[in-house]
Design a protein around this nucleic acid. Structure first.
Lengths: 207, 207
DNA sequence: CCATAATGAATGAATGATCATTCATTTGTT
DNA sequence: AACAAATGAATGATCATTCATTCATTATGG
């Protein structure tokens, strides 16, 4: 057992850099979800993490850098689960697509806190080139994989095989729009309706 | 000619309340598009409008109320053009839908400034109930009309007539997602590709 | 038709609150 | 003892709000 887990009651435990950074990022996500990106302060974040304000300077240098790392964290976390599905060897293309849709609307990744943070950053992309770059690159990576999947799925479909790129755009936009809908109208049923809508779109392509 | 237009060189022209409010809202849109919602200050806005800081207090009481009116302005402006299409008597349902799609991707309403502002507010909906209420209500109104349109268009379609609500959700989500795409990747071609993607989805429903 | 008083729109310096950042000090770990 | 992590009071910058003052417009009386 590592030393830093032995004494959980001590007030000031020194933790490995990576763990502190993660702790602060998690707190940042909670705060942005609760108070919004504009209103979240350093004091909010460090309070939420039960740490002192100075610690952000120690681990991220500035608030802005912490925010950027938080955005990257969310994008990377999504991408990781996404890649896992694509890397799977025991799934046909159609099963993979189904798995992606399930993943996109599973509470593991897509809960209202994460969505709130993701869209909070998206809302600032026009004004902040760094956010724009991170979000656009993330979208490009996802789209690239989805496009390959549709290419394969529609390779025999003479009517649609030339529209794969358009279909990919539409599918991705549909997913984003459905997420936005969940963020905007947090009724119980919305998530299931969204999954159905995504699946209905896809199955409509495959007759 | 009204009195307040006669002397354009004078420093302090008194304008009707509604005009000043509009002027400030327009300046707010520009500032949010340029600097983001979080970084836009009263000084930015009143500078952009070539007015003094105190004037916001006079016409909107607080910054927050100005922001709320700005959000309402954008929602109402969209709704107005939208309603005009629906009110038209010399269009069949399908023509109306086509007109809505054209409208949704026309520069008149959907330019990158307006999109940036709309999504900036959407990014804060989880934290700010008032933004959530305005955006959700706007979406509901739009969806209600779109749903009626699809109901009518698909009334003879035995395969899809029971899925009208799901189709409406998907169509709206697709539009939102395509807007987000335009905001995120401002290449020349994106708007046309988006329009095509929307139209392709709709025509896929109508075979 | 002019002079001037009354009105209220607009100004912007001043105020006080909030907040990110800094860093000397404290505390835990090696 | 030496080092590194963590603290949090202090600092200075930024910003929304206030309101006494300025000024254009309108109303009034002669």
């Amino acid at each position: 057992m590592p030393k830093h887990f032995q004494n959980t009651t001590r007030k000031r435990r020194a933790l490995p850099k990576a763990e502190r950074r993660n702790q602060l990022i998690k707190a940042t996500i909670k705060c942005i979800a609760k108070k919004g990106l504009a209103a979240t302060t350093m004091a909010d974040i460090t309070n939420e993490a039960d740490l002192s304000v100075g610690i952000v300077n120690l681990h991220f240098k500035t608030k802005e850098l912490l925010l950027i790392e938080t955005l990257r964290f969310i994008a990377d976390e999504y991408k990781e689960g996404f890649d896992q599905i694509f890397a799977s060897n025991n799934m046909q293309d159609l099963e993979k697509l189904k798995a992606i849709i399930d993943y996109d609307f599973s509470p593991r990744i897509i809960n209202r806190n994460k969505l709130a943070v993701w869209f909070a950053f998206l809302g600032e992309v026009k004004a902040r080139p760094i956010y724009q770059k991170i979000c656009a690159q993330h979208d490009d990576e996802i789209n690239h994989e989805i496009c390959k999947l549709f290419s394969s799925l529609l390779s025999e479909n003479t009517k649609r095989k030339n529209d794969v790129e358009l279909i990919t755009s539409a599918y991705s936009a549909l997913t984003d729009g459905l997420w936005l809908d969940i963020l905007l109208s947090p009724q119980r049923s919305t998530v299931n309706a969204a999954r159905n809508a995504a699946w209905q779109y896809v199955s409509g392509l495959l007759d």
